[in-house]
Write a protein that binds this DNA or RNA. Structure first.
Lengths: 332, 332
DNA sequence: TTGTACGCGTTATCAC
DNA sequence: GTGATAACGCGTACAA
């Protein structure tokens, strides 16, 4: 790998002049400039970024942490983040945490080490005290995630109202035995808390009591959905509707219902979350809650770039809440 | 940001000793070691990676370039790549080229700049002469891609035989008016060349002539599939089967067929490519060609790490061909 | 076992 | 306009 000294030697000018050519300074003798450029081309010289960084130069790379990239919600989110970044001259690199706190820290260390200049987190696995430490190394924006106290900008949709409206829709359709499925736990903490509350409120308003045996926790995948349907199918007292909190779980439920001959929505209404492409593929087509993925992504990238470039007019702890939309199809 | 000298000052030992502690050398006075560690913790010291790199230390970050992360084939591929990397102590960062040659080069520059230590390309947009230049900055492995001359290791499935078998399956089912759909062009160059040849051979063997008006090129998405179905539907002389080369295009075709009332497979048989989860969601379920995604990912990561760590026993230009599998469901 | 001194490749600050 | 030279933070011969 040729370095600046090689260029110096071959072009006969000083190191400073070469550096000036590299960073195209104005006042420089045209002949020397050309000679230097010629030499650089000939030997295939590129400035060593490590050395540049050592001198304190900033980069333009944004890292995005996603739990699992195979989840279409996140891949579409990343798509929109990347798009806005590109428009503003930033590169986006994606990192999958696999819902593993260690991997998440590993990636945050890239921020500490200036390998990336800012981080968008679309999920977090560590407690916030751990993550907060990284704030001094660069901006962090939280995307579509719950946070007890907003230390950083947050872009999200109103999960509480979204699940409330979803369950309310079921109630309005006449269903009263409404099961509930979540990726998290059914308690007052954690990132799924708001959705839980929405479910509770909608039921309370309709004077319906929660049936604990119709609560399914930690379900994420299509496969999980299949199993959920089997559990329901084997119940003495079956629910007549289910709010899944995930299009993928809903897909598993619908596919398996077809297999065992359970009619949807006559015997079981199903509502998903996200409005992924698969929602339209299912038979019957899936009623679901659409999140404004591209707006979320755009906002998040916009925020982090502004912070990076010092255009921040907003306060530190602003929360940006974006609207969702209930998309009614055939499964409810 | 504290540096090594701060640690030196506060701990009272020499810089070398601190450095030895950092890189945990064996022979060091326990008391000093502990004192140094204590100081490092107190001031929150982290080695500056740029400085380390400047000294020639290697990193452990692998970059993966994908055309579009929202394509499930690639997100699952990335998943398996990441998994193997993690097992071997490497971090994986993902980059989306958006099928844009400029973005691809932007990312390859991260290799040049030692921001990543190796690159797995799951697609390439630039001509190979451009990419070849980056080989001197670190190893590159090509994954699931065609290449005129193998300058780098390639992990792929036999696309020619895969499409040949797929089309042959249609022939064996009695279909003779077989349309063909591809993401590329229908000619002898480019990455889809092998699949084209497989289609041609299967037809030739059955003494069927290619009908040019049943050839669809540059189709990728569900939406493309919908449009293809409309074209077919409006034809005087309709094909009775279609090889799509993509589960997503196939999904569009099937969904739209349902809408216009065209029966599948009675009036049109459909075969996809990849065996994505959606293949089982469709109604009827999709016959498709399954690629061994996790094996491809594992192999690619394995190859690049071996190269990075100098364990290469293989020759430079080895091509690893993995087996595919025809999954027959209800759409053919 | 520990410390000194130098070099990695670049840019900023001077002085000319 | 141009060229020395001193940092940037770290690792490592080499010496002790």
């Amino acid at each position: 790998m040729p370095n600046i000294n090689d260029v110096v030697r071959l072009s006969g000018v000083s190191k400073s002049t070469v550096s000036r050519v590299i960073n195209n300074y104005p006042h420089i003798a045209p002949e020397k400039r050309e000679r230097v450029i010629k030499v650089m081309k000939e030997i295939g010289y590129t400035p060593n970024v490590s050395a540049q960084k050592l001198r304190g130069l900033a980069g333009k790379i944004i890292g995005v942490i996603v739990p699992r990239i195979v989840n279409p919600f996140f891949s579409y989110l990343v798509e929109s983040i990347e798009k806005e970044g590109y428009r503003r001259g930033y590169q986006t690199v994606i990192f999958q945490s696999n819902e593993d706190s260690k991997r998440e820290v590993d990636f945050l260390n890239l921020l500490k080490r200036k390998q990336v200049d800012g981080v968008i987190m679309t999920a977090y696995e560590n407690d916030w005290d751990t993550i907060k430490k990284y704030l001094k190394f660069g901006p962090i924006v939280l995307c579509n995630e719950y946070l007890p106290e907003p230390f950083v900008p947050i872009v999200k949709v109103d999960q509480f109202t979204a699940s409330y409206e979803g369950v309310k829709h079921l109630v309005q359709q006449g269903y009263r035995k409404i099961a509930y499925c979540t990726g998290g736990l059914f308690n007052d903490s954690g990132k799924y808390k708001d959705r839980n509350h929405g479910y509770e409120k909608a039921l309370a308003e309709a004077d319906i009591e929660i049936n604990p045996s119709w609560l399914f926790i930690k379900r994420h995948t299509i496969e999980d959905g299949r199993k959920v349907l089997h559990q329901i199918y084997n119940m003495q007292d079956r629910p007549d509707a289910i709010f899944t909190g995930s299009d993928e779980v809903a897909a598993g439920i619908i596919m398996e219902a077809r297999k065992v001959g359970l009619r949807i929505p006559e015997e079981l209404a199903v509502i998903g979350f996200d409005d992924q492409p698969l929602a339209e593929m299912l038979m019957p087509e899936l009623t679901t809650i659409k999140q404004p993925v591209s707006d979320i992504g755009y906002q998040a990238m916009d925020l982090i770039i502004n912070r990076l470039e010092g255009n921040e007019v907003e306060v530190e702890d602003k929360i940006y809440t974006l609207p969702f939309k209930l998309v009614i199809r055939k499964s409810t």
